[in-house]
């Protein structure tokens, strides 16, 4: 983790009619940082994340992602980020290698690069003998690990993970976090949402969103001290308890 800022937002706001989904969000995320983006259901996490990924134009405020403006340079943003969600990650009816080749291809990697990198990747994940298997036939944990590796296949500056470990068994969940740490060590910024409070502890810093606003943002340990408790669960509960809205 360095002092280089890769995500910077200033009073970023998204309105849907009268409804303010994200309300004047201001924060910076640094290169190589693991940034936990927490919040109750309906707090506005998805809306905020869509703006950061260049999928949704903000109503007001400013933000730069990997140095690019969220209003004007969304195409450049998309080239420099990776994205993975619990719901959509890989094509179940394509094989492991076909998925890698496809996603490598849409990010403009050359055939040679794809070939070299995909071999290294499936070896590293222990999937070498499963390269020609359909992704749909793999266990959930493997799928999620593969999906993450594919999301960072094109060496993005930032990777956005939307509840990547939902429903995954406890051992695989930890292996998944090993991958996150490795990516962070290579300088990739990891922006992650989760419902597991222990995972919040693995983040360098976390932000808590309540009713469209960021109510707290700090290192887990500082937040716990601030709320005078030993568990992140309590911190979350304290902050989210007063929430007015749900999804």
């Amino acid at each position: 983790m360095t002092d280089e800022v890769v995500i910077s937002t200033h009073q970023l706001t998204k309105r849907f009619g009268d409804f303010v989904a994200a309300d004047q969000i201001t924060f910076d995320v640094y290169k190589g940082e693991i940034f936990g983006f927490l919040g109750a259901n309906g707090a506005g996490k998805t809306t905020a994340m869509r703006m950061l990924c260049g999928l949704s134009t903000p109503s007001s405020g400013e933000a730069t992602i990997a140095g690019f403006d969220v209003y004007k340079e969304t195409e450049k943003i998309k080239k420099n980020i990776g994205y993975m969600s619990q719901k959509f990650s890989l094509y179940e009816d394509l094989t492991v290698l076909e998925n890698i080749r496809f996603f490598g291809g849409i990010y403009g990697l050359s055939d040679r690069q794809i070939k070299e990198k995909s071999e290294a990747l499936i070896n590293q994940l222990g999937l070498a003998s499963h390269g020609h298997k359909l992704v749909g036939s793999l266990p959930l944990g493997w799928k999620q690990k593969l999906a993450f590796s594919v999301a960072i296949f094109h060496d993005p500056k930032i990777v956005f993970l939307d509840e990547p470990t939902g429903g995954v068994d406890p051992v695989t969940r930890r292996q998944f976090w090993d991958l996150i740490y490795a990516a962070s060590d290579e300088g990739i910024t990891v922006f992650v949402t989760t419902h597991y409070m222990d995972e919040a502890e693995y983040c360098n810093r976390i932000s808590m969103m309540v009713d469209g606003k960021i109510k707290a943002l700090d290192a887990p340990i500082t937040l716990k001290q601030q709320f005078n408790t030993t568990s992140m669960d309590d911190v979350f509960f304290e902050l989210a308890r007063g929430a007015q809205r749900g999804d």
Partner: peptide, 10 residues
Amino acid sequence: TTGVDTVSRK
């Protein structure tokens, strides 16, 4: 409780 936040789960 899958996909539901901590407060609602409690």
